[in-house]
Design a protein around this nucleic acid. Structure first.
Length: 516
RNA sequence: GGCGUUAUGGUGUAACUGGUUAACACGCCGCCCUCUCAAGGCGGAGAGUCCGGGUUCGAGCCCCGGUAACGCUACCA
């Protein structure tokens, strides 16, 4: 990593060139605890981890929990567990501490308030009193008029009296960034070169919400600075908001970090990877029996970056050719080259991941393979939770297999004669399954919550409990007879259950399209 | 719609500073091995590098112009 060796100390140098070469590399990942830990987090996490280790620096984990409407309490722990499972250990974070804590943004609200006040004082930010509804209406009319939907700046220059009047009304305010009307902002993306945005196209971003929590943009910049982050390695979707961040750094008079925007993982149809079209939960991968080293290896393949072995190496080391695609985390630390990353969004192709996982499985010493089975799919914990569900339903122990096969399968796909109730059409049934998915997504998997949620849906959509539950049973187990549905789902787990319903819907949709 | 980014077989990547019939892996097809299925071995189909111009003896690599896909366009991250 080059650095700015040639630049003499220029206190107010143009801007870019971050961190003098003396400052140690510090990177971070900043997941939001809004649900299951995401495979994209693992991807960016891996890249940051490699970068930190290669540069002899620190890898920080920061929890961005500023959106309390999407906050999921169990999520944070799942993030910790999943990243540890992958072997991506962080040097500083909410659970391990560190010199620049706290590492949870909800615990830093005072800090943000303090810094936003500085912005207010220096005229780089202003209070804005519109309600969410007013803003929504504004946006709609702009779109109707074929204008780009942006904040119209109505409150940019409010007088002290006007502000006082709004406050007297008890109107809540947000604080917005005062983006210059003229000019443009250019920043350097380490992989792409200079990227320029005209200020016309940079909105007056809300920095502090009316609930007193910061938005990503403010919190991110403040924290990255305070936590001495030298390199921001994040997904490509952030490129368009980077000018806002740069403007903030400048407003504060802070040094700007290096930006590395990584290509976005994609579905098979090239859209940004989504749960509808791909399993994205790390919990899913773990519970489905993927090995962490295989997942890491696969993620390392996404976007390139690994130096391929040369012809000579293949010959002299007697490598099997396909070993060009197989490498461990230590090998990535040694050979991964950020400058070689290719920018086209890679399709996250489960087929190749499965092949890779198979390679790793086959390479395991038999003892380790057995241990892996016993630690996951045949763990005492899992089996002991399944056993009570079947004890009263079988006559010989061997029937355990028939009764519980769906717990151990990669996927099941029932035919229509199994999942469509007598009085319903295929279309109706699939539509209802989509409703079920929606309910399941926002319901905790416990007996107390699952049953009423599903039954309520049945009432709303006029589906008999029997048909309602049978459909789900068919989707999840592939059969019409199974251990109790709800308990089975809880044991099977939310991640895998949801994925099974999504795959089901996906398949039905494809089939329906084929018919047309 | 606006702005930005990207563009090599179905998928992931390769091709030193422009230089031979565009390479490797996954997937697919076939053959061999084999009690089956995998694994393994061997072979094959599949891109002329988004399109159109230009520079050059020569372009996937350079230049210009398009197109498409994706991302952003929230008091979400």
């Amino acid at each position: 990593m080059g650095g700015s060796i040639l630049l003499p100390l220029m206190a107010d140098s143009i801007m870019t060139t971050p961190t003098d070469s003396a400052s140690p590399i510090r990177v971070r990942i900043a997941p939001s605890p809004t649900g299951d830990p995401h495979v994209g987090t693992a991807y960016i996490g891996l890249l940051n981890f490699i970068y930190a280790r290669q540069g002899g620096g620190k890898f920080v984990l920061r929890i961005e929990d500023t959106d309390r409407t999407r906050f999921v309490p169990t999520s944070e722990q799942m993030i910790f567990d999943s990243l540890r499972w992958l072997g991506l250990a962080w040097d500083e974070g909410p659970d391990v501490g560190g010199p620049y804590g706290p590492y949870r943004q909800s615990e830093r609200t005072e800090i943000y308030r303090e810094y936003v006040q500085k912005l207010l004082d220096s005229g780089h930010a202003y209070r804005s009193f519109e309600t969410a509804e007013e803003l929504e209406a504004m946006r709609k009319s702009q779109i109707a008029a074929k204008l780009p939907p942006r904040y119209n700046g109505a409150h940019r220059e409010l007088s002290a009296e006007q502000i006082a009047a709004f406050e007297a009304e008890g109107r809540p305010a947000v604080i917005r960034l005062k983006v210059p009307v003229e000019g443009e902002t250019t920043f350097r993306d380490e992989l792409r070169g200079d990227v320029t945005f005209s200020h016309n196209n940079v909105d007056d971003q809300v920095l502090l919400k009316s609930d007193g929590f910061p938005t990503y943009h403010l919190a991110n910049v403040v924290d990255d600075h305070l936590m001495r982050i030298t390199d921001v390695i994040r997904a490509e979707e952030w490129i368009s908001s980077t000018p806002k961040h740069v403007l903030l750094y400048k407003a504060f008079g802070w040094e700007i970090p290096r930006f590395w925007h990584m290509p976005l993982l994609r579905n098979l149809d090239k859209s940004k990877i989504s749960k509808r079209k791909n399993p994205v939960s790390l919990i899913y991968y773990r519970e489905s029996g993927f090995l962490p080293q295989a997942l890491l290896n696969f993620l390392g393949l996404m976007g390139g970056g690994m130096v391929q072995p040369t012809e000579q190496e293949i010959v002299s080391k007697g490598l099997n050719v396909k070993e060009g695609d197989i490498f461990s985390l230590p090998e990535m630390l040694e050979k991964f080259d950020f400058k070689r990353i290719s920018l086209g969004g890679p399709v996250f192709d489960l087929t190749k991941l499965k092949w890779l996982n198979g390679e790793y499985l086959r390479a395991l010493p038999p003892g380790d393979f057995f241990t892996a089975l016993r630690a996951t799919i045949f763990s005492d914990d899992y089996l002991s939770r399944i056993a009570p569900l079947v004890q009263t339903r079988i006559e010989t122990l061997a029937q355990f297999g028939d009764m519980t096969d769906f717990f151990f399968k990669d996927d099941v796909m029932p035919p229509p004669e199994v999942f469509v109730p007598k009085k319903r059409t295929l279309e109706e049934t699939v539509a209802f399954a989509a409703d079920q998915l929606e309910v399941l997504e926002k319901t905790d998997f416990t007996t107390e919550t699952l049953e009423p949620a599903l039954k309520q849906l049945g009432v709303d959509k006029e589906w008999a409990v029997k048909d309602n539950f049978m459909l789900l049973r068919a989707i999840l187990t592939g059969k019409t007879a199974s251990p109790p549905l709800l308990e089975s789902m809880i044991v099977f787990g939310k991640a895998r259950s949801l994925d099974r319903v999504r795959r089901f819907l996906d398949t039905q949709k494809r089939l329906a399209n084929q018919k047309k």
